[in-house]
Amino acid sequence: MKPAPFDYAAPNSIEEAVALLARHDGAARPIAGGQSLMSVLAFRLAAPALLVDLGRIPGLDAITIGADGVTLGARVRWRDIEKDGRLSGAHPLLAAAIAHVAHYQIRNRGTVGGSLAHADPAAEMPGIAVVCGAEITIVGARGERTVAAGEFFTGALATVLDTDELIVAVRLPPWPAGRRWGFEEFARRRGDFALAGIAAFYDTDAAGRARDVRIGVIGATNRPCRLPAAEAALEGRIVDDTAIAAAAAATRASVDPPDDLHAPAAYRRALAATLLERALARARR
């Protein structure tokens, strides 16, 4: 399982990296931590002519917490999120979800940008980005653009990224204190990709009703997405057993998973609803 041959470049700036990607017109691939790409190469599922290593580009590894939310540089690693004590307050959902990502060694090299670009439908970071309404900043040969996470993922392992484009950062909107949230996922073994996962959060008004309800699902659809029907079942309501049951029913009705090797569609549909119930039970505690 040796990769097909390729050339290697380690530019010192984004501009250089983008120029290399553009010049190779789809035959070059960026690599950062390589925790997804390296196994793709080992199986020869991809055979790029050039790998553009983003490892030497300064300024991509910062975690910035400010009035506009939490901004993660593309090269921020799972380990960096785990070790950043500020995040449990600044974005507890992010911290909780990222705790499920892969294993110890992978967490030391796997990056936020790599996960977003790889776009595995069961991955946590894309799911959090979508459910939170994150903005993804992209730089390419034609300049910089910002894409809403909800529009970034176009299918399993597919995104709007052009072959000459790089993710430089993702910004999660501010997380108000007192927000109710829950994250639940179910995987066969610790660190495996989830069979399904649910992230749910809402704010409460003075009467204790749920406002701005967000429910996102991973693993049970071909890309991370929100569940508008389940959100609507809770919006403006007290989150009690009845409301949760209604949201779970809406989840069952609206999630349309594929059958695959690891689970039939019916299982994932039921699992998503179960995890939603559990996430909401946690959120309202």
Binding site: S39, F43, R188, R189, R190, G191, D192, F193, L261, H262
Partner: peptide, 23 residues
Amino acid sequence: VYDGEGQLLTGSLADYLMPTASD
């Protein structure tokens, strides 16, 4: 796991699940 065409679907250790230390 095989499909009806005789293709092994669990062709990697990410899909063939062995016990780990936490199981």
